[in-house]
Design a protein around this nucleic acid. Sequence first.
DNA 1: TATTGTTATACTCTATAACTATA
DNA 2: TATAGTTATAGAGTATAACAATA
Lengths: 168, 168
Amino acid sequence: MAASKTTAGDALKRQVPLEPALDVAPLQMGELSELLGYSLKRAQLKVFEDFLRCMAPLQLTPAQFSVLLLLDNNPGRNQTEIANTLGILRPNFVAMLDALESRDLLTRMRSPSDRRSHVLTLTDKGRATLNRAKKLVATRHEARLIELLGPADHAALLGMLAKIAAEF
Amino acid sequence: MAASKTTAGDALKRQVPLEPALDVAPLQMGELSELLGYSLKRAQLKVFEDFLRCMAPLQLTPAQFSVLLLLDNNPGRNQTEIANTLGILRPNFVAMLDALESRDLLTRMRSPSDRRSHVLTLTDKGRATLNRAKKLVATRHEARLIELLGPADHAALLGMLAKIAAEF
DNA sequence: TATTGTTATACTCTATAACTATA
DNA sequence: TATAGTTATAGAGTATAACAATA
């Protein structure tokens, strides 16, 4: 039916448009509604978007947050081990670490036992930033998700996603 | 700790390494296990990967599949309407349609009522490809997900993801 | 003046090959 | 020879500005 926004008849019936004038008729999503991958992708984008909003004061992306968190839980590891665990390719990890190191959040030190590898360590500022980040994530980001889904469903969702990530 | 792979003692105990020699000790994921966005992202990558594998015979990406599906369910729509519905920016939609049109899966026709816009229509080949694609998705891709999670959990997961995508 | 499709462009992510220094 | 970190590079995906044709 094309996009006929206003006709002479419409103008008489309603001066103020009730719809926000976006689209005349919403499209049929069809089998897309039943496609898990589609909802998965849309949900992921929404969640990352909210993560960035909540983390704006600290200027940390989800990937950067995951690096700081992993370093804090696994001191003394090298770049390859951290990158592999997070599914980041080593070449791409270099610039990421450059950025975090230049912000004084972590340090690279040559390992005495194997001088090829860099031991990654959070600085005091890195630990402080991580702790503030964890609080923001918990109180602003994750709390909103739990509010939306309810605690039980939120936990169930987390379990199913982890299962897909690990076993699919 | 570091990465001491083989010591004199080890060599006596086991000639054949039981571990696949990948990593000595697995890393601690810490709070990352409770971060919904993290599992969401990892799960999404796995699902898209499997989608591409299942769809290899037809050479369709998730995004291309969603376009064909939407066109089939919404005949006579223009580029802006389809792109907006799928969250694709109009400039980026152009090359995507070029690719599908060059494979003779759809056609662009100037609309008689508004000669600025292109009406998008699936070709016979496009409809045939879509139908084969839907069968592949259902029998190979989605079926495996349902098998992994169980039908009830699969449906619950779909509902929660759709809720996040729509309301979060 | 506003909108549709388009071009140009840029920035992020991701992926592979190859170099260097160490082992 | 093999591995860790790095460089260079190329390809997707995504984002914005601006132009021609049309309304």
